[in-house]
């Protein structure tokens, strides 16, 4: 299954950093988590676009970088002016992750059903 390739890539990346002796100052912990969530959203969005056959590499890559940085920047500004923009980003991106996941599942199931019909 082609599906497993991105997942495998994620595991590889995870292993690289986890084994390596990389440390991030604890003050950045919440930002890093937010960036991870934004990254997850972008990757799932890419998968969804791919399944919908509307995938465009430039949109995907720029979306990944811009969304991650913007989420972190927004959270930082929120912290500075005393508004919990962090939560806004988490709610919004988290919602999109769920939406993308459900859409991916739907396309996948449709494809499976089609394949069954063909065979």
């Amino acid at each position: 299954m082609m599906f497993w390739v991105p997942l495998f890539g994620m595991l590889v990346g995870f292993a690289i950093i986890y084994m390596a002796n990389v440390t991030v100052p604890p003050g950045f912990a919440s930002y890093l988590s937010l960036a991870t969530l934004a990254g997850l959203d972008a990757v799932l969005g890419g998968v969804r676009a791919g399944l919908e056959e509307k995938f465009k590499a430039d949109i995907f890559v720029s979306g990944f970088i811009a969304n991650t940085l913007l989420a972190v920047l927004l959270a930082y500004i929120g912290e500075q002016i005393g508004v919990e923009l962090f939560l806004a980003a988490v709610v919004l991106i988290g919602g999109r992750v769920f939406l993308n996941l459900s859409l991916i599942r739907r396309y996948w199931l449709t494809k499976l059903a089609l394949r069954k019909k063909e065979s």
Partner: peptide
């Protein structure tokens, strides 16, 4: 592309 960025995502996650 997705795989490549998945690697980055994995790094972020770790």
């Amino acid at each position: 592309s997705v795989t490549l960025l998945s690697v980055v995502l994995g790094m972020l996650l770790a």
